[in-house]
């Protein structure tokens, strides 16, 4: 079953053209990987899928779960089940991780959160990710180390249980154990009804995952799609032959 379809997408940041006719199709139950040189447009793609107002779609369509979402705002897209783990998560003072997640969850369901159940699940998820429970009372990402911020993104993914999780370089900045913990987290989240899109520069995070497709993104376009072996090949040879 088709979950995300992007057709002939052109997108800009201000005057700068970044995505230049990008196509992508992700089915439920799949794990996709996007690799590509710095500045190719990977984060832009992730941000466009969630309608970051910094970027504008010039033309093309984004369909999610059988519906064109071009006109939906960020929060509406999130409510449909799209999630992004940010390459550089924002620090937001004065809002605790718990309160943030509670508000997010009740916004998504339209119902107040059942506090006890919520707390229990949050604690369990934090344990799975080797996170100290005290982090739930800290201000959102404020003073978190680079790796802690990334783990906090995955914690949010587990809590909000989206249909499509886009992980933008979640692995970069993580130590070896943390990478394993995060891919464990991805495996726990993953099922036949949802999908994951991993943006990465390294194959380490992919070792424990069953990857369905690997795409190479260069200069705003997908230039090559293959299976898990393509990632290995890139790791060894680089992008030279695609540029």
């Amino acid at each position: 079953m088709n979950l995300l379809t992007i057709k002939n997408l052109y997108a800009n940041a201000g005057e700068k053209e970044i995505l230049k006719g990008l196509n992508l199709e992700i089915n439920k139950g799949e794990i996709h990987v996007i690799m590509g040189p710095n500045g190719a447009g990977k984060s832009t793609l992730a941000n466009i899928i969630l309608d970051n107002p910094q970027y504008n779609v010039i033309k093309g369509n984004i369909e999610f779960d059988g519906e064109n979402i071009n006109k939906l705002k960020t929060d509406e897209r999130a409510k449909k089940g799209i999630f992004m783990s940010f390459q550089t998560p924002e620090e937001v003072p004065g809002i605790s991780v718990t309160n943030f997640l509670k508000t997010a969850q009740s916004s998504r369901t339209g119902e107040p959160v059942k506090i006890f159940k919520f707390k229990k699940e949050l604690e369990e998820n934090m344990k799975k990710l080797d996170m100290n429970p005290s982090y739930s009372t800290r201000d959102l990402n404020v003073g978190f180390s680079g790796g802690e911020k990334k783990k906090n993104e995955i914690l949010q993914m587990l809590t909000l249980n989206p249909k499509l999780a886009i992980l933008d370089e979640t692995d970069s900045g993580l130590d070896v154990d943390a990478i394993r913990t995060v891919s464990k987290g991805i495996n726990m989240y993953k099922n036949d009804d949802n999908a994951v899109l991993i943006i990465t520069h390294s194959t380490k995070i992919l070792n424990d995952l069953k990857v369905d497709k690997v795409h190479i993104l260069v200069d705003g376009k997908i230039v090559k799609t293959g299976d898990a072996n393509l990632a290995e090949q890139i790791e060894e040879e680089g992008y030279a032959k695609y540029i």
């Binding site: 999130a78 992004m84 937001v92 943030f100 997010a104 916004s107 949010q156």
Partner: peptide, 9 residues
């Protein structure tokens, strides 16, 4: 944008 990306208006 960060907060909205989690479903918050």
């Amino acid at each position: 944008f960060y907060l909205m990306s989690r479903g918050i208006s």
